[in-house]
Write a protein that binds this DNA or RNA. Sequence first.
DNA 1: TTGAAAGCGCTAACAT
DNA 2: ATGTTAGCGCTTTCAA
Lengths: 361, 361
Amino acid sequence: MRGKPTLRDVAQRAGCSITTTSNILQGRSHMYKEDMVQRVLSAAHELGYRPNATARNLARRRTTTIGVVLDPQHARITHNVYAHDVLDGVLAYLEPRDYDIRLITPRANDPAAVWRRIDNGSIDGVILIAPVMGSPLLEWRHYSSLPAVAVGSTLPDEYLLSQVDIDNDAAMATLTEWVIQQGHRAIGFIKGHPLHWSAHQRERAFRRILSQHGIPIREEWILQGDYGPESGAIAATQLLSQKDLPTAVIAANDDMAVGFMQKCRELEIPVPETISVAGFDDAYWVQRMGIQLTTIQHDRYQVGYLAAQLLLHQLETGDSRPQRILIPGTLVVRRTVAPAYALASVPTPNATILTEGGSRQ
Amino acid sequence: MRGKPTLRDVAQRAGCSITTTSNILQGRSHMYKEDMVQRVLSAAHELGYRPNATARNLARRRTTTIGVVLDPQHARITHNVYAHDVLDGVLAYLEPRDYDIRLITPRANDPAAVWRRIDNGSIDGVILIAPVMGSPLLEWRHYSSLPAVAVGSTLPDEYLLSQVDIDNDAAMATLTEWVIQQGHRAIGFIKGHPLHWSAHQRERAFRRILSQHGIPIREEWILQGDYGPESGAIAATQLLSQKDLPTAVIAANDDMAVGFMQKCRELEIPVPETISVAGFDDAYWVQRMGIQLTTIQHDRYQVGYLAAQLLLHQLETGDSRPQRILIPGTLVVRRTVAPAYALASVPTPNATILTEGGSRQ
DNA sequence: TTGAAAGCGCTAACAT
DNA sequence: ATGTTAGCGCTTTCAA
C-alpha cells in the first residue's frame, strides 16, 4: 500500500471483504457482528482512511454538489452585495446537509464553456444568480436538463426555470402607495438597469399604482438609471433642471436614491422638505452611512436559503417542474419621505410597515 | 443508449474504439487519419456528448478543483468584504486556467468534518482564507499533506503553510511615520480583533515606529477594539473622557476609525482640527460615504490572485515548501490627519504616497 | 494509425 | 452475517 489508503487497504487490514468495509464505513453496521465492526472501524482509523469522493460520486452517480453560477456581469462579485447575500443563504442551507458548492463564473467571451462546466456530471443541480436579460445562461433548457433554480430575476415563464426572488412588484406597489398616502401627487421615478427584470418590474408597479390612484404619469419625471449611484446623481441633474418639479421621487434602488440625494445637497435642495426621496433594497452601506432613507427592505439571504431548499427538494423528489417563490419585502419608513401637505397620513391597509426602531404598525 | 451519452456511445457511433475517441476528444488527433477525426468529432457533436468530469477525475487522479475554505468566523461572508475581495482574485486567476472552485465553510461545531471535506480527493489544493488564531484549520499538517496556501493571515512559520498577505507591518509603519511627520507626538491607537494576526502586527508596527522616534508610548491611549465600527466608538468614549488627550489616533482599520469619528462628531470634537484620525484598509463603504479618511490602501484582490498563482505553481512543480508573499500597501493621504502644528510637512522618504486625486509624489 | 485491456476507488445488486 | 462480482465513465499503458 502506497499513497493514500483505499478501501482495499482497510479491508485487508481488517481481514474482511471490501463490501463489508464499505457497508460498515457507511454506517450500515447493524448486519455485522460487533467484532467485525470494531475491526473495520479501527483499521480505518489506524490507516487514517478517508473515502475518495470522486470514486464514490462515480459509483453513486451523484455528487452532492450544487453549482452556483454567477452571471458574467457579476463575475467580480466584490461589489455585488446581492450575490453574496444570496450565496450566504445558499451556504447556510446546503452546508449542514453535506452538500458542497461549486462556484461557476462564466467567461464573458465563451458561453459554451459554461455549459461544459455545468453539464459535465460534476454537480447535481445548479443555482443561477441574477441572470440578466439576454444572458446565454437563460438558454437553459436548450442545453441542459439539470435541475436548476434561478434567483434574483423573476423571469418570464417561457424560460422554464424554477425561481426564487423578492416580490418586486408587490413591494414597489406598497412603497408607491405609501408615498401617495403622504399626500404626494407629483411623483418622479428613477429606473434601474434596463437589462434587469427587477428594474422593469419595479417600474411597472410604480406606474400601475399611480394609474390606480388616477395620478397622471409625467414621462419627463421618469428617468433612466442603471442601479449605480452615479446614475442617480445624473437623474437628479436632469430632473431638477426642469421648471415643474415633482414633490417626491422614488428610485428603483437605494444606491440611485443616495446619488440623487447627494446631488440635491449640492444644489441645496433640502430632502425631504422640498423633495421627498424613497429607495429600494435597504442597502447595508446606506444604513451604515446613517442616511435615514425610506425604502423597501427584503431578505436576500432568505432568497438564497429558499432557492437551495427548493433545489434539493427537486433533486429528492425528481419533480423539477418550474416553481416560483416570491418573498415579500417590508416598507421601512425613515425620514426621507415627508407628507406633501399637513394631512394626517392614513395607515397602509394591506402591508407590513416597519417604522424605524423596529415596531410594526 | 439511455441517459447521457458516454464515450462508448460516441465510439460506437463513430465506429471506432473508445481509446481513439478519448484521444481525439482530448485533442490528440495528430496521430489519426483526418477521416477518423472528423467521424469522432461529429459523432460527439451529434450526440451532444459531454465528458463526465467525475470519471475523468478518477482516472486522472486529479480534479482541477481548488477548495476555498472560509474560517468559521467568516461563514457568513456577506459583510466580510475581505473574503470576497480575495475570492474575486482567486476566481480571476483560476477560472481562465479551467480550475473549478469548491467553497468550503466549516461548521463551527465539527472541525473533523472539515478535514473529511478537504481531504477526500475532491480537490487538488486549498486556499485558506484568513484563519484566525486558534482555528482548527491551522492544525493543517497534522491532518493533511494537500498543497495549501493561507491568505490574509501572516502566520508564524511553525504552521508550515504557504502564505500570501498584505504587508501589515510595513504599511502600518509607513502610516505611523506619516502621522509623526505631521508633527504629532501624542498618538493613540485602537487595536483590532485580538484573534487576528493582522491586529497584532499592526499594533506592533505602531509601537516600533513610536519607539524609533523616541516617542513615549502611553498605554492609556492604546485601546482594545475588534475591527467593528462600534468598537471604534467605544474606544472614542474611553479615550475622550481622559483629561490628557492625544492629538492623533490611528485605528487598526477603517471601520473603527469611522466609529471613532462618529463619536467625535457627537461630542462635537472636530476632526482633524482637534484630533487627527487615520484608518487602515481603505474600505469601499467609507470612500462611498465621502469620508476623506487618511488610510492605507491595499489590494485584496491581488492577494487572492497571487495565492491562486502560488498554489497552482506548487501543484505543477510539486514543490510545496512554505513560501510567503507580502504585498505592500499604499498610504492614501486625505483629510483626517492634519499637521499638529504649522510646520511644512516633509515628504516620506521610502514609501509610495498617493494623495487624493491619484497623483504620486 | 488504431485498439484491447487494465485500472482509478468505490457502490450495490446478488449470491452464499 | 459476509463475500463475489459487475459496473460507474474515463485514461492510459502497451500491443498490434
